[in-house]
């Protein structure tokens, strides 16, 4: 099995705060991998480091066996690795359909490919994916007028529109109505199995991550605390302590 993403010995500090220290992990192709940890343990920071949002202090990040830790956000996105934001980010002044249409992959395209009609080609797929996340009825509403949970779903659909190889989701179920969470888990699994997108998911909801991930990493205080299968993590005393605030 191929390793899609390999992080080795990555450290990142913000001034005096050591947000990540010596983090190593692997995301194999085709899997769903989880990342958990208490608030402030450095999960989002690690995601940002991986997608090139800020330079790392040391270590190496490889995507498809190529070093990417020096690349810029856009270059990494074009290679097929995408992240969604914990603070959901969509284009508020545009309709849902427009949000989708401009989210297609730029992998095999350049600037001149933007000078074609908005309607060309991808409109059907945009509507299908909106249907898939349950936003079809809202497709001509301004994205900024959607509720927070709906925006989260839209952001997920936009990411799917981009057809990434690896999709990194920062708390996809935060703010989603508990009755809809099971549906969202199914959709994430569907994206993984039917669309072949490898997922790397930050999640606070234990039930969700235990259900979803095949392998889980746990961060605490910026360090890798534990890793393993969901059952192992669930019963790991160190993880339980970290979550119960025994730190």
């Amino acid at each position: 099995m191929n390793t899609l993403l390999e992080v080795s010995g990555v450290s990142k500090a913000f001034g005096g705060v050591q947000a990540n220290s010596d983090i190593s992990l692997k995301v194999p192709e085709g899997k769903i991998i989880g990342l958990i940890g208490p608030n402030g343990s450095g999960k989002t920071t690690l995601f940002s480091s991986i997608v090139g949002y800020h330079p790392i202090d040391s270590g190496s990040i490889k995507f498809e066996d190529k070093e990417i830790s020096k690349l810029r956000v856009r270059q990494i996105a074009r290679r097929g690795m995408l992240r969604t934001f914990q603070q959901t980010r969509i284009y508020g002044g545009m309709t849902c359909v427009q949000n989708m249409l401009i989210s297609t992959s730029m992998r095999s395209h350049n600037l001149t490919s933007l000078f074609v009609s908005q309607k060309s080609g991808e409109h059907g797929r945009a509507e299908e994916l909106l249907e898939f996340v349950g936003l079809y009825q809202k497709r001509y509403l301004l994205a900024g007028d959607l509720s927070f949970g709906q925006q989260k779903l839209l952001e997920f659909a936009m990411a799917l529109m981009n057809e990434p190889k690896l999709l990194m989701l920062d708390e996809p179920t935060a703010g989603i109505n508990p009755t809809l969470i099971n549906g969202l888990i199914d959709r994430l699994k569907h994206a993984n199995q039917a669309f072949g997108i490898t997922l790397f998911v930050i999640e606070h909801n234990m039930r969700v991550i235990m259900n979803l991930a095949e392998h889980i990493y746990c961060l605490a205080h910026g360090q890798m605390l534990a890793e393993g299968a969901p059952e192992e993590i669930q019963n790991d005393q160190r993880v339980i302590d970290a979550y119960l605030g025994a730190h």
Partner: peptide
């Protein structure tokens, strides 16, 4: 404004970081 370029500049207006994270060549646009 009827092309994808029009959408791209609107995307930059609404959230440039997001546009960049989605792979749009924002500077060149």
């Amino acid at each position: 404004y009827s092309t994808r370029f029009g959408l791209a500049i609107n995307a930059i207006r609404d959230d440039e970081d997001k546009a960049e994270a989605m792979g749009l060549p924002t500077t060149r646009i």
